[in-house]
Design a protein around this nucleic acid. Structure first.
Length: 300
DNA sequence: AAGGGCCTCAACCGCTATAGA
DNA sequence: CTCTATAGCGGTTGAGGCCCT
């Protein structure tokens, strides 16, 4: 399809709008209503392209736009909806009266994202509890029995990158039916307290197999074959984690798996590196995770 | 006081989707 | 069915303000 030229013509002004331009645009739209953006600038006496006029109106001049700081309630809504929808700013904006997609996107990138990352960092203090001889969970007796792709992948990522993973988050993700075992010899006999961080490079996440009578846990038809966002958006998972706390839980996991930023040659907003693993390939996850080295560089 | 770095957010860019001729 | 115009979306940019040294 031939691309429609926009703002390519000579004499078209760019940059910040002046009050006079705003007035011209408002006056024209009050008189004629929205639409006809291509011809609007000439009719309204503006040296702007139609697209620029439409954006100025939609994001700034529209009378129903709410300006000012976001309320805590709006923060919560954005966080929850972002956990569900990802960077679908327009979809999120439909649930926040008076807020534009652009405004929400900026607010997320400059405030909420940082706040969530900071929360993840604050929650990653390791507190191992020595329960040697009391748990019956000696590592050598626990060859992992994986029942789901997600759990396996999380485990492999954790073990491969010695990443700080908050156990609360992971146990939540695995619906509480999870045993976490320190496998490394120097940690033999240890498990971690519910508030601990998994800092060891050989941590196992062992979900109890899903059964039809269990309302929580993973079924085999829920996998990470696409990406983590899809996984988290999976209806089955969303149903399990429909409370406020668990929305935050999901958000934190996303934060952890994206933590590190592009500046480190790593990840930023979404775990797209997971895309390369397809369950149908029957690829060994260990090989897959090993291959991530070359894909993401310094991870975390 | 100055200036360098950081942060915010309006505006732009590139692209897709959709409607209608 | 094809082509074009328009609307809309998400990512990115850069001007200006703020803060710190």
């Amino acid at each position: 399809m031939v691309r429609t030229p926009c703002c390519k013509e000579e004499g078209i002004k760019k940059g910040a709008w002046t009050p006079e331009e705003d007035q011209k645009l408002i006056a024209y739209l009050q008189l004629h209503g929205e639409g006809g953006w291509r011809t609007l600038p000439e009719k309204a006496g503006l040296k702007r392209c139609g697209k620029s006029c439409r954006l100025r109106w939609a994001n700034y001049l529209r009378p129903d736009i709410k300006r000012g700081e976001f309320s805590p309630e709006e923060d919560d809504t954005i966080i929850k909806l972002h956990a569900l929808k990802g960077n679908k700013w327009a979809a999120i904006a439909t649930s926040l009266a008076g807020r534009t997609d652009n405004e929400i996107k900026n607010y997320w990138n400059t405030n909420l994202k940082k706040r969530l990352k900071q929360r993840v960092l604050d929650s990653t203090t390791p507190k191992p509890i020595n329960l040697t001889g009391k748990t019956g969970l000696e590592p050598k007796n626990h060859k992992p029995v994986y029942s789901s792709g997600p759990a396996r992948l999380l485990n492999r990522v954790a073990s491969k990158y010695a990443v700080d993973l908050n156990r609360d988050i992971l146990t939540g993700i695995i619906s509480g039916n999870t045993t976490i075992i320190a496998e490394n010899s120097q940690n033999s006999g240890e498990v971690y307290s519910p508030t601990s961080t998994l800092v060891n490079s050989s941590v196992l996440i062992k979900p109890i197999p899903y059964t039809a009578s269990t309302s929580s846990g993973f079924s085999d038809n829920c996998s990470l074959s696409d990406d983590l966002t899809d996984f988290l958006n999976n209806e089955e998972i969303s149903d399990v984690y429909s409370t406020v706390d668990n929305f935050e839980l999901m958000e934190e996991l996303k934060g952890i798996l994206s933590y590190g930023g592009s500046g480190n040659g790593g990840l930023e907003d979404s775990p797209e590196f997971l895309d390369s693993w397809n369950v149908e390939d029957n690829m060994d996850l260990e090989n897959f995770v090993s291959s991530l080295d070359s894909k993401v560089g310094v991870f975390f």
